[in-house]
Amino acid sequence: MGTQSQIYAGAFADPVFAAQSVFRTLMDSFARPGTIGRLSTQSSPPSPLGNASGAVALTLCDQDTAVWLSPALAKSAVSQWIAFHTGACVTEAKDEARFAFFEKGAAVPGFDQFALGTQEYPDRSTTLVVEVEALTGGQPLVARGPGIKTEIVVAPKGLPDVFLDFWTANRAIFPRGIDLVLTAEDSVLCLPRTTKLERE
C-alpha cells in the first residue's frame, strides 16, 4: 500500500492543457504508427507505473472506463492513484477493461484475453498501455499499414519474445483486436491494430 501522499500527488499541474497536449501526441502517434512521440507534460504516478503511462491514464481514463492493472500495479498504490485522479474503477476482468496497464518487465498475457470488440462494434476493445525498457535498441521489426508511407522500422526493447506472435494473431482478426501504446520514460510509440509487423 502506498502512502497517502503518493496517492494524492503526481497528477497534471494544469489538467486541461496537459490532457490536450498528451492526447495530441497520442493521436499523432496512432496516426503515424512507429513514430516516437515525446510527451511535453509529465505526471509522476507511484512506482512502478512509469511517467508516460501515468500521463496516458490521466488523459484517457475516467468513470466511464474500467481499467485493468497488471498484478504488480494492482498491488501497488497505482490502483488508488488512478481511482483518485481519474475516477476510473479498477477491474479484474481483462475482457471488461477499456485500458490495461503494464509496468516495465511485466508479463504480458495473450492479447485475446482482453476485450477484442465484436464484428459489429470493433471499437469496444481494450487499449493496452505497456511500458518497455526503451522504444529503440531492441529487435528491429518492419512496420507497414495505414499511417505509414511505405514502411518504418520499430525496435522497442524489452518486449516479451512472444510479442510478434501475439501481434500477428491480433492483426489477423481485424477489424477486431486490441490497440497498443508502448511507453518508455517520457515517450510513446503507438501500434493500432492495423499495423503489420515483420522481422527485418
Partner: peptide
C-alpha cells in the same frame, strides 16, 4: 478518435 484511427 483513437479507436477511429485504429479502424480506418
Amino acid at each position: 478518435i483513437l479507436k477511429a484511427i485504429a479502424i480506418p
